[in-house]
Computed example of a mutant assay.
Amino acid sequence: MKIGLNTDGFGALPLPACLDQVAALGLTHVEFGLGGWSSAPHVDIADLLAKASSRDRFKGMLAERNLEISALNCSGNQLHPGEIGPSDTKLAYDTLELASLLGVERIVMMSGLPAGGPDDRNPNWITSSWPLEAMEMLEWQWQERVLPFWRPFARAAEAKGVRICVEQHGRQCVYNTESFFRLREAVGPTVGVNFDPSHLIWMGGEPLSAIAALGDSIYHVHGKDSRIEQRARIDGLLDPKHVTPVGGRSWNFVSLGHGTAVHGWLDIVKALQQIGYDDVISIENEDYSMSAIEAVATSATTLRFCIEQAGKAKQ
């Protein structure tokens, strides 16, 4: 396996300094956020789409540091009922085009979340069968919004030879294994998973069981962890408070090994090996308890140790 970084983790650095830091940490791959929920600190997608010279310069900067792109990330909400929806839809299709131009085989994104009905102004995440209208809302979402976007989008990705890695994230129509397979069965194997253990953990799931269930539909992996805090014993895991300050929350995103123990990450790496995944684990840092460089370095050290140990155990 190889270790990479979602470069939003070093979003305060300009692109050359970011890539220098990635190389200095001994990482081999990068994942770039292009817009949507990313501020796109390192990539101007319009410029790269428009100019071959910009693409050549961009690829040259990576080659100078022996870095490769693991994926392009366009996570946003293309199903939003307001202006965000069309904007993020355009971003998704533009990302397919840029991936094709750069020779990148994977894009990472989320399924999106529509309104609960045709007259609603905001997205609505349905997580219960009660009250009774919730099931009607959920079916409306899938039949009228989710599948009408995803069927043609999956066909467009297949035509360009690009695989879509959907991240199972709370407040999305695809947020767990079951909802992922509902999408995949409807649109085909061009759609796989960007497996991110952190979201599963804060929703009460268990990564090893999910990896076994997802199997070879895992196309890309995020190295990201969550820690369940003491407050969860009082309030449970649903927590609408902002991610900062971290104190007082039921759970927090943390660097690898600070939520799931190191031996737990070793088990995750072994489980990925068992289902045939031998590719990039892209560190996505959202640990707000320490500096970005400390958090990324900690995660990289944890991953490197686990990959080495898993390799020895396999011999």
Rank of each mutant, 00 (worst) to 15 (best):
V146I: 12
V146W: 03
V146E: 02
L147V: 00
P148V: 05
P148I: 09
P148N: 03
F149N: 07
W150S: 03
W150T: 09
W150H: 09
P152K: 00
A154E: 04
R155I: 02
E158H: 09
K160L: 15
G161E: 06
V162G: 09
I164Q: 10
I164N: 05
C165K: 13
C165R: 14
V166T: 13
V166R: 03
Q168P: 04
H169S: 02
H169W: 06
G170H: 03
R171Q: 11
R171D: 08
Q172E: 05
Q172D: 06
Q172R: 14
C173I: 01
V174W: 00
N176V: 04
N176Y: 03
T177M: 06
S179I: 03
F180R: 11
F180Q: 11
F181I: 00
F181C: 02
R182D: 04
L183V: 09
V187P: 05
V187F: 02
G188S: 07
P189F: 08
P189W: 01
V191E: 10
V191L: 12
G192R: 10
V193Q: 10
N194H: 14
N194G: 06
N194L: 13
P197L: 03
P197G: 11
H199L: 00
L200C: 09
L200I: 04
W202C: 11
W202D: 13
W202Y: 14
W202T: 05
W202V: 08
M203K: 07
G204M: 02
P207I: 02
P207E: 02
L208G: 01
S209T: 13
S209G: 06
I211D: 13
I211G: 12
A212E: 14
A212F: 04
L214A: 12
L214T: 08
L214W: 09
G215S: 14
I218C: 15
H220Q: 14
H220C: 10
V221F: 10
G223D: 05
G223C: 03
G223A: 08
S226W: 07
R227G: 07
R227S: 14
R227D: 12
R227N: 05
E229N: 15
E229F: 03
R231G: 01
R233D: 11
D239V: 10
D239H: 03
D239Q: 09
D239R: 04
D239S: 07
V243P: 02
V246W: 12
V246M: 10
G247P: 00
G248S: 06
R249W: 05
R249N: 08
S250V: 07
S250R: 12
S250C: 15
N252Y: 06
L256F: 09
L256E: 02
L256M: 14
G257P: 10
G257K: 11
H258V: 01
G259V: 12
